[in-house]
């Protein structure tokens, strides 16, 4: 049997909202260590990797490793029925072909239970190599979301140039062109508002802005986003999930022909 309980069920709902535009169905791997998921988008230029460690849940029980094929589209619809302060329990009984989502209101006066049928999905598990990136930009996730949304108005691609002093996002298209430059913060009251850059080598990489906007659906999970970049290497865009894990998105840079 598998059972995991999260006092703040809304965190799980945000995780699903962060994934479901990029991948509509995916296999969840459940083990004693926690829940992991890895999936590629249908065009095979982006990959997402999710980790939710078992110690981040209020209670967690996983008697044997399980692979659960789940429609994220359906799960998202079910989770929309959850109250914002509800506790969420996810359960899979032995020999069951369904996942059970139980939602309990904070005052314990309302209890809802939904079952979703599990799917048989083919999944190809790719290894993600440890990479020493040339540059890691940390910035407020709301700011990154706004910039990606604005850049999409100008063109299909966004070029991210990073130097030790700052990071510049630029786009151009039929309507015109534009760029936004953020300097590294020197003095901020709140760490979550800071822009910081760890740099070994300056980088300039171009990405499809449509994908960056899909990644930004996970921005409500975390105040900050980490953008790790090296020339000719997929971008890693990371949002932390509280203290319990992370969502990492990988995106192929565009190559000039």
């Amino acid at each position: 049997m598998f059972e995991a309980r999260l006092a703040q069920g809304s965190i799980f709902a945000k995780v699903i909202e962060g994934l479901r535009e990029l991948v509509t169905e995916a296999t969840w791997e459940c083990s004693g260590n926690g829940i992991t998921l890895q999936a590629m988008d249908s065009s095979h230029v982006a990959l997402v990797s999710l980790v939710l460690r078992s110690d981040g849940f209020e209670t967690y029980r996983c008697d044997r490793n399980m692979s659960l094929g789940i429609s994220l589209t359906s799960m998202s619809k079910v989770l929309k029925m959850m109250g914002k302060d509800d506790t969420l329990t996810i359960r899979v009984n032995d020999d069951s072909d369904a996942i059970v989502l139980s939602m309990e209101s904070q005052n314990q006066e309302e209890f809802a239970e939904y079952e979703l049928r599990l799917m048989d999905l083919d999944s190809e598990h790719l290894g993600i190599p440890d990479t020493d990136y040339s540059c890691v930009v940390k910035m407020p996730s709301t700011k990154f979301s706004r910039i990606c949304r604005d850049m999409a108005i100008l063109g299909d691609s966004v070029t991210i140039c990073s130097t030790k002093d700052g990071v510049k996002f630029g786009a151009k298209g039929d309507v015109g062109q534009g760029s936004i430059r953020l300097n590294q913060s020197t003095n901020v009251d709140k760490e979550e508002d800071a822009v910081s850059i760890e740099l070994r080598e300056a980088v300039a990489l171009t990405f499809a802005v449509r994908y960056l906007n899909m990644f930004c659906k996970a921005a409500p999970l975390s105040n900050q986003v980490n953008l790790s970049m090296s020339e000719d290497t997929p971008l890693m865009c990371e949002f932390k999930v509280g203290d319990m894990g992370h969502i990492r998105f990988y995106l192929a840079p565009k190559i000039e022909d």
Binding site: L47, A252, K254, I255
Partner: peptide
């Protein structure tokens, strides 16, 4: 292509 280079960055563990 971008896709081939992207996939070659990752590997399929055996």
């Amino acid at each position: 292509s971008s896709r081939q280079r992207f996939l070659s960055f990752f590997f399929i563990p055996h």
